[in-house]
Computed example of a mutant assay.
Amino acid sequence: MDGNSTKHLISCKRCQHRKIRCSRTFPCVNCATAKAKCEFRENDFKRPPVSREYVASLESRIATLERFLAEVKAAPTDDQRRAMLEHISFQDHLRTAAAVPTAGHLPSESDDDKALREAMTKASLQETAEGSRIYHGPTSIFSDSEVAAASKSPYLGSSASLSTSTPQYVDEYGSLHNPKISLCIGLFFFWQYSQFMFIDREAFVQEYDQDPVNGEFCSEPLVYAICAIGALMSPDPETRSMSTSFASSAQDILMSKDMLRVPRVTSVQALLCCAFYEVGRGNLSKGWLFSGIAFRIGQDLGFQRDPAHWDIKSQLVAPYNFDNEFRRRIYWGSFLSDKIFSLFLGRPTFMHENDADVEFSEPLP
């Protein structure tokens, strides 16, 4: 590997440790500039992160084993202990002996992949009565469809009496297809789009033209939240003055009972836009509140899990209407937004790298 001709799939060890962008050449630009030793891992692939859910599943297995040992210890006779040991299947709770690393042997990449997949099989995405889907992690009692059905959870089942549409909101501007709203949307995408990568511009514009209320990429609160930011980009004082009204409209809809009851991707996007708007206006606590709600709704939707790792046929009634790249963009856009808010406000982060297994998103066009 001489010169800069070799291109690696991952960053070098030094850049990873310093959390800076690496040129992925040998030696990389950063190491060459600092005259530091440049090293790459032998396995030139990104190691999937170990999520907190996987750690929780391991803790659950350990707790199960401890309970079993306590029951064996409390058994009054040796015959009962032998019977308990004969009927227990350790493969239900523990990894096989072959998968446990021995002294001097580190687990290979395939071991990590297998462990991560085992944890994912205990999680599920289940359809709600309103047509949305909610995520249940491996430790959730609702991750088992039979348990969920038996509990008669309000998140499950279907009902023709429930509407899947968002509440119609009419304000002083009337229709969502009026020139003022279209102008503010244009200003947003012209000046601010690069800072809001969790919004898919092409999909949003297409659905805005067709159905700006009930779509997967466009909704009333998202339109108003985008307009609130876009209006601030106008040199016209009258247009800028509409920003407050747009923001109030978006927040009124988002804080309504129906919107909070049903998790939606567009709600995550609209709440993050409102968070940026409020922080920019100096309302730091209000912006922090909106961002926190957005991340929680996103996790409720399971956006921290990469769709490529799901068994769609067994986990979902029907595939999502938007592609995997869109969900990755929402996650990473939210991830970066969380870091921006946390650094700017000096507060702890909501989202952690080890909580997710989302692949890197493609750069914005």
Rank of each mutant, 00 (worst) to 15 (best):
K73Q: 11
L58A: 05
G230W: 01
I253N: 00
E59K: 14
P138S: 06
C274R: 01
F196D: 00
R52T: 14
C184W: 01
L162K: 11
R82N: 05
S151Y: 09
R52A: 10
F204M: 00
W288Q: 08
F68Y: 12
A70K: 15
P76Q: 07
V279R: 00
L85R: 09
S248N: 14
G186H: 03
K339Q: 09
S5L: 15
C227M: 07
H93Q: 02
C227L: 08
D252N: 15
T349N: 09
V55Y: 04
N283C: 13
R240F: 11
D144R: 06
W288T: 11
H177M: 04
K19R: 14
V170W: 03
P167C: 04
S51C: 13
L69M: 14
N30M: 08
S110D: 06
S151A: 14
R82K: 11
E127T: 10
T102R: 07
F189L: 12
S60V: 13
P107T: 14
K46D: 08
A308T: 09
T166Y: 02
Y155R: 03
N283H: 14
R261W: 10
T6C: 13
D258C: 08
A56N: 03
E53I: 05
D144C: 11
S108I: 12
K257S: 11
E202F: 05
A148T: 06
S334T: 08
S89C: 12
A356Y: 01
L260Q: 13
K286N: 11
I293R: 04
I88R: 08
F217L: 01
F190L: 15
E53C: 04
D209I: 14
Y208S: 00
P237F: 09
K73T: 13
V279S: 00
R67W: 11
L364C: 06
P237N: 13
C31S: 04
